[in-house]
Design a protein around this nucleic acid. Structure first.
Lengths: 313, 313
DNA sequence: GGCGTACCGTTGACTCAGTCAAGGGTAATT
DNA sequence: AATTACCCTTGACTGAGTCAACGGTACGCC
């Protein structure tokens, strides 16, 4: 039912409406919290997953009114679910602990909630469940501000990653520069050559991964000229740029080439790829040749770059 | 911050907690609805996006208490925001219409809400916004039960789709049957050949699309034998199986081959691909040869299938 | 035609989650 | 020592939402 064309704002608002309805239905239809209230359940959840907190923590965490929380805790205490004691460090504060009975009820509520979600999930074909969980993780990750800038890491390609290289190269350069299907063919050919026959000691591909998602790649293969390595297919996803991933990839590539004994590294690129040029420069490549050509349906200025590997051992 | 390892149920619950907090903060911090209530705002929204509804519709749509809604509408009527009139078709029902003034206030609330979402979004790097919207659409689409089973449609590949074919073939067959990188190379080679040089009148590729996402593919190319077409790379995503997409793809392929004058169609597959075999059988292919081989790191039983295209004109 | 059932909206009575403001106590800052 | 700021509590209140009873009309069935 959701339409494909919408601005992010519209999409988010539609999602909000949808989700308020859903949560309402989920909470209400089954009596999820009886004999407690939603807020009490939230408090119990927090307590159960942090063993002991100060009342002030609860207040700020769940953004509750101080008076409301005070009364609420009083009620829970009378029911034998929590215990209140002045904090050791600051007598103004109050340390809240779940009693054994409190942990029981928290577990009960937990289970009920899991059940409700489970029955919601039972209407979802099991093949779609991983996609659902994945999408939710994405939303949460993005909206909670990515939390502490995850580090990208490099790894060797797994099944499908070479295909990913083809897909992203083709899609991005088509979108950004209007490259046609010839480019996709070229990349597929390079990747096929690599997959079918490469010397793992002298040729290698790296995938840059961020949050478990591939966001970049580079390949190092033998060049026709003896003692020379060729860097190919450097790519970083637009939404992962500016994090030094390109540098990391080229760095790994150059280091590898030097380690395994290449004396020189070469690469071919086009002048329109400005960000890439900056990276090559930073790693010591020098422009040795430049000539115009028409490829992939557009007019381009091709460039050959070189890096001597012996110089800085 | 979200962890990668969690069951769908855990993931959904975490998401629910997260999103209730978020919505709470969003609604409350800015005074989104004053001088109306959340429920009134929801009612106004519904009315504004459907021009006129019966009260009963509102009740079921937003799952409101009848008495509550009645009073609520009374208040809105007194404020000159809605008009109530008995429905023409059924005097029991009540038709609710927004007045001009009502449309104004609805627009105002709308704008405020958009603003709030916009300011939320301003904390999200713009490169991530499309991904966010996308993930939300996915969640909504999956949870709302796909609403009226969207029809898959076939189209020609766009930029990146050939790469997608490589990626999914490699990833799926690696996961399901343990195929190694040789298979990815083979697919990349096939795709490269197609991209670099194919006769659009005699060779074609189809992508099956569902909800704007590619979920399947097939390719028709010329075979070495004269007058013969070869079907290759048939694939349907696991979560889109059982919807007849494979049939649709093979059907398109066969029809195309027949239309452009091939007299025969052939294909090579392996016996472990049971679902595919059923599809080929349904389209009239017959098994003409079978021989064991070792490829892609596993022992397989290869099969040649054929279909005469002249028979059923 | 008439009866029972079911849905429509209205109204009264109520509950109870959540808010606001005032106040007493201690910590931190000066 | 005084000011400020935070902690919790308590009283008083609001108002969103619920429940039950009721009069009215449609619809199915004999």
């Amino acid at each position: 039912m959701p339409h494909a064309s919408a601005t992010p704002v519209q999409e988010i608002r539609a999602f909000n409406r949808f989700y308020t309805n859903l949560i309402g239905a989920l909470d209400y239809s089954r009596q999820l919290y009886v004999p407690y209230t939603l807020t009490e359940a939230r408090v119990l959840y927090e307590l159960n997953h942090a063993s002991h907190l100060d009342a002030a923590d609860l207040r700020s965490e769940l953004s509750l009114d101080a008076g409301y929380l005070s009364r609420l805790l009083g009620k829970l205490e009378k029911a034998g679910i929590v215990e209140r004691a002045p904090s050791a460090r600051d007598p103004r504060r109050q340390r809240i602990t779940l009693t054994a009975r409190g942990r029981e009820t928290a577990a009960l509520l937990d289970e009920r909630s899991s059940e409700a979600v489970g029955s919601l999930l039972s209407n979802v074909p099991s093949a779609l469940r991983p996609r659902l969980a994945d999408a939710m993780r994405t939303v949460r990750g993005i909206l909670s501000g990515g939390g502490a800038a995850p580090r990208p890491r490099l790894r060797e390609p797994g099944p499908g990653d070479l295909g990913w290289i083809v897909q992203r190269n083709a899609a991005l350069y088509a979108a950004e520069y209007g490259f046609n299907i010839d480019y996709e063919g070229l990349v597929a050919r390079i990747v096929a050559d690599f997959a079918e026959d490469h010397d793992p000691h002298l040729e290698r591909t790296w995938i840059a991964e961020l949050d478990g998602r591939p966001v970049g790649c580079v390949m190092c293969v033998r060049d026709d000229a003896p003692g020379t390595a060729r860097l190919r297919l450097l790519l970083v996803e637009p939404d992962a740029r500016g994090m030094g991933i390109g540098d990391q990839l080229v760095g790994a590539c150059v280091e590898f080439a030097r380690d395994v004994g290449y004396r020189e590294m070469t690469l071919w690129t086009n002048d329109i790829l400005g960000a890439a040029r900056a990276i090559y420069l930073r790693h010591g490549f020098v422009l040795v040749d430049e000539k115009p050509h028409r490829s992939f349906g557009v007019d381009l200025l091709g460039q050959d770059w070189q890096l001597r590997l012996g110089d800085t051992p």
